[in-house]
Amino acid sequence: MPKKTYRQAINEAIASEMRRDHRVIVLGEDNAGGKGAPGEPDAWGGVLGVTKGLLPEFGEDRVLDTPISESAFIGAAVGAAATGLRPVAELMFVDFMGVCFDQIFNQAAKFRYMFGGKAVTPVVIRTMYGGGFRAASQHSQCLYPLFTHIPGLKVVVPSSPYEAKGLMIQAIRDDDPVIFFEHKVLYDVEEDVPDEAYTIPFGEANVTREGRDVTIVAFGRMVGFANTAADELKRDGISVTVIDPRTTSPLDSETILDSVSETGRLVVVDEAHPRCSMAADIARLVAEEAFHDLKAPIRTITAPHTPVPFSPALEDIYIPSVAKIKAAVQALAAKVPA
């Protein structure tokens, strides 16, 4: 099977849906790049090249560059979705949500409910997130908890190239507004990805490792970290289940609760801040629904309650690590059931 990067997998998913459905269009800042400039067209294909090649294949009617004007073009994507298109808009870095959030959380998210179930808004908003690029406080955040908080939005956090392709195709075919979080550090990660189209349903967690002793729930880039930790811990005789929820909204709570009922121990790993986060949300879920299954306290491994720092020396300790995950699992596994 051909190996593809996360970047290629997303590109391939968008291109195949554009071929399948003429209502699918792409818009965003420099999604082609070079518009109106003297140099070559499709100069960038997105700031990190994810949409490269779409312009030559689909033309300017379907691959629209925008002014740097997130309120206007994210809102336009929402309006186009409400009137019959299936736009895939790019909010370059999720940190920029601050200048257009109204169009997402007050407009797109609420149309269906406010209008009594009569609106359909099939917009996909792609956005980059996550630390590791030394991009500092306004280009590195993991803001999916903020979107997860809003009823009416679906929030997707793919952890690998295979996952990204299937989830992107599902996102484009989905009739609800979808926020699709792409971790910039994952763009060059490669794995086997089928050439054919396929969809991965939302709200269905992936179980990437199956074990008996401890359950780890991890999101996005942290899934790979959790897998590494699980593989290393297995050598030490600790058997770990790793759950990748894939989507934070909807959330597959059943898979998490089933696993905790078997292991009795839970570690949640999240690159986002600790407060009002997915880690807090899942800890709440398990405390409420599976309290009596627990053999040890729930542990969360998250970034600290600080902005993302710039200096590599600081950013490296800001982001959760395999070592921290292992230490948390080992500490839990050592606890003797009461």
């Binding site: 073009f73 809102g75 336009a76 309006g79 186009a80 298109l85 169009q103 007050n106």
Partner: peptide, 19 residues
């Protein structure tokens, strides 16, 4: 939301133009 409509209307116009 005061000012909520104009971006949406750009989208509706985009749909009309594209289709």
């Amino acid at each position: 939301i005061v000012g909520g409509g104009p971006p949406l209307i750009c989208g509706a116009a985009l749909t009309a133009k594209y289709l």
